[in-house]
């Protein structure tokens, strides 16, 4: 077993396209939960409408990929309004229930038979990347990187755009949070009645945060569609949302850079445990495991590491422990 190769592969995952996409979606979730205190358990729903905005526009209507992005963003705004209008006036847990249910309903609708003319149901949509790759400034055939960590030109292009979007939305988050607007939404996170009693329209602020965070999630979904080139409804299961929550809590909720660090650490760990277990298996050290077991064991192992991290560093990698412990009402 070559531990160096496993580490290199883990490092490659930590900066790769998937880590960037999850970081972007988690930036949106951070705005929801980390700053506004909205319990959104359906961030994957925003990713789904973003991905299918691109997918349907490109594969079914032959539109340019840029139009697909706009369609996806439009769908995210509609979804946020549909979720927010009935629930944001109610207690926080109602939004949690509604979002988790809505994301599942969306997945089931997009894979349903009656939606097949648009979504191709369970077969999904293919050939989504060509428009995006046409404007690729990198050499598609070349390899880029240092040492054992290399990417193809197409991956480089996707990583550049996605990490660029992450940087852009980190900047936007930073600007918003360090403004009076950010003060209001942090106040809402602490106690919305107090903020209401000071003359702020709490509902409007929560809606703004929900829409903006949802838009970021939809962008992540759209990037996922062009990264994979093909999408399928069943990849948007609640598990994706829970990965995003793990990423957010791992990095530190309510910290601007939390989602980025969280995503990199999460995908590093996932890749490392995967490589390590498979390595042990190849050495014949795990005779009691057969092929499909590795995935389950890997998730359990990664879960254990996360439990340890939450026990010993509940504030996340860059959270402020003092600030966190204060939260006793």
């Amino acid at each position: 077993m070559d531990i160096f190769m496993i580490l290199a592969e883990a490092a490659r995952s930590a900066v790769g396209p998937i880590a960037a996409i999850y970081a972007l979606a988690a930036v949106g979730l951070n705005l929801h939960f980390g700053y506004t205190g909205l319990l959104n358990f359906g961030q994957v729903g925003f990713m789904l409408v973003g991905a299918y905005g691109v997918g349907i526009s490109v594969a079914v209507f032959d539109l340019p990929v840029a139009v697909g992005f706009l369609v996806g963003l439009g769908c995210a705004v509609v979804l946020a309004l549909l979720l927010g209008i009935p629930t944001l006036r109610l207690r926080a847990d109602y939004l949690a229930i509604t979002t988790i249910a809505a994301a599942e309903v969306l997945r089931l609708v997009y894979r349903a038979g009656f939606a097949e003319p648009l979504t191709k149901g369970v077969y999904g949509l293919q050939n989504l990347s060509s428009g995006f790759r046409e404007v690729n400034p990198f050499d598609a055939g070349g390899r880029y990187g240092v040492g054992a960590i290399t990417f193809t030109g197409n991956q480089m292009w996707l990583m550049t755009v996605t990490w660029g979007l992450v940087a852009l939305f980190l900047l936007i988050t930073w600007l918003l949070i360090h403004s009076p607007w950010g003060r209001v939404i942090k106040g809402i996170r602490e106690d919305e009645d107090a903020v209401r009693s000071l003359g702020k329209n709490v509902f409007a602020y929560k809606m703004q945060a929900l829409v903006l965070g949802g838009l970021i999630g939809a962008l992540a979904g759209a990037m996922l569609a062009v990264h994979q080139g093909a999408i399928q409804p069943d990849q948007f299961k609640p598990q994706v949302t829970f990965f995003l929550w793990v990423i957010l809590l791992l990095g530190g909720a309510g910290r601007v850079f939390g989602p980025v660090l969280g995503s990199m650490a999460f995908w590093f760990l996932m890749s490392f445990t995967d490589g390590f277990l498979k390595g042990l298996g190849r050495e014949g050290l795990l005779p009691f495991l057969s092929g499909p077991d590795y995935g389950a064991i890997q998730l359990a192992f990664a879960g254990l590491m996360l439990v340890l991290l939450i026990v010993f560093r509940p504030q996340g990698l860059i959270g402020d422990r003092k600030e966190m412990l204060i939260n006793v009402k």
Partner: peptide, 29 residues
């Protein structure tokens, strides 16, 4: 009492001010 616990005392106070342009989403930038 509804003190906004994870905000500074000064930020608590500033939340009370009315008609702040920076409290609009576009104004924040």
């Amino acid at each position: 009492t509804k003190a906004l616990t994870r905000m500074t005392v000064l930020d608590n106070m500033l939340l009370g001010a009315q008609g702040q342009l920076g409290e609009r989403m576009a104004g924040a930038f």
